[in-house]
Amino acid sequence: MNLSNIIRPEHTLIGLSVTTKWRALQAISEKAGKAFGIDSQTVLKALESREKLGSTGIGNGIAVPHAAIDGMTSPRGMLIRFAQPLDFDAIDDIPTDIAFVLLFGENNRGEYLNVLAAIARRLQSEGVLAAMRKARSVDEFYSDFIADLRV
């Protein structure tokens, strides 16, 4: 499976202007609803429920909001850079500036875990995060992350 089939260039954005984690989840839900043709309130409820179990702020300025959505047949994702870092209740207390949003069906949990592992491996590659943070365009931001990445 190619991660670029899950997180596509057209589902990537930079400069999302929000001030709190909860506003971020609202904005993400609206964008995901439009991008994937699903109800944004369903996405929001699922993301909020997951976030209440524990923060998806994994540290180093990264969050991975994720949730199972009824009716989804394959994992879908978005890649977002916020206009300003925000408090995502991350484990290291570093404000979050990049979010990887993952939505999946109940039957795709195993596949979803593979996607998370691939994201983690890529972010450990030297220079990837720094390049993503310096990217001046959506295309550059996406390319800095996705380059030669396979799940």
Rank of each mutant, 00 (worst) to 15 (best):
A90F: 00
D89Y: 10
I80A: 03
N107Q: 15
L129F: 06
F145I: 05
Q124Y: 12
R133A: 03
K134F: 09
L123W: 01
F141D: 12
F88W: 15
V101N: 00
S137L: 08
I119G: 02
V115E: 00
A147I: 13
G77N: 10
I80C: 04
A135T: 09
R109F: 11
D87C: 04
E106Q: 14
L129G: 01
K134P: 08
E140A: 13
L103N: 11
Y142P: 09
I119A: 01
S74E: 15
L102K: 02
F100A: 04
V115G: 02
E106L: 13
S143W: 00
D139C: 08
Y142L: 08
L103A: 13
R121P: 02
F104K: 05
D92A: 01
V101D: 02
I94W: 00
Y142E: 07
F145L: 04
R136K: 15
L123Q: 00
E111Q: 14
S125R: 15
P95S: 09
A118T: 07
R121K: 12
Q124A: 12
P85C: 09
S125A: 14
Q84G: 04
G77K: 08
F104H: 11
A118P: 05
A99W: 09
V101S: 00
F88S: 10
G77E: 10
F100N: 06
L123F: 11
V138D: 12
E140M: 03
L79I: 01
N108L: 06
G127Q: 06
P75F: 05
L86P: 01
E140Q: 14
R122T: 05
A147W: 13
L102D: 03
E140G: 07
R121T: 03
D93R: 10
S74A: 14
F141G: 03
R150L: 10
D89C: 07
R136W: 12
M132D: 07
S137Y: 10
A131H: 08
F82E: 00
L79Q: 08
F88G: 05
A147R: 15
D148V: 00
Q84S: 13
R121E: 07
A147C: 12
F104R: 07
S74F: 10
A118G: 12
G105K: 01
R136N: 15
D144F: 15
I91A: 05
I119W: 01
A117S: 14
R150H: 07
R121S: 03
L103T: 08
I146F: 06
L103M: 05
I80G: 03
A147Y: 13
I98T: 14
A135I: 02
I146H: 05
R81K: 13
D87N: 14
L102G: 06
Y142N: 08
G110L: 10
L86I: 15
N114K: 15
Q84M: 06
A130K: 14
I91G: 02
A147D: 13
V138Y: 01
G110Y: 05
A117C: 12
Q124I: 07
V128H: 01
F82A: 03
G77L: 08
L149M: 11
F141V: 07
S74P: 06
M78Q: 07
D87S: 00
F82I: 07
P75Y: 11
V101G: 05
R136Q: 15
A120Q: 09
G77M: 06
R121W: 00
N114E: 14
F145G: 04
S125I: 14
E111H: 08
Y112K: 06
M132L: 10
F88E: 04
N114A: 14
E140W: 09
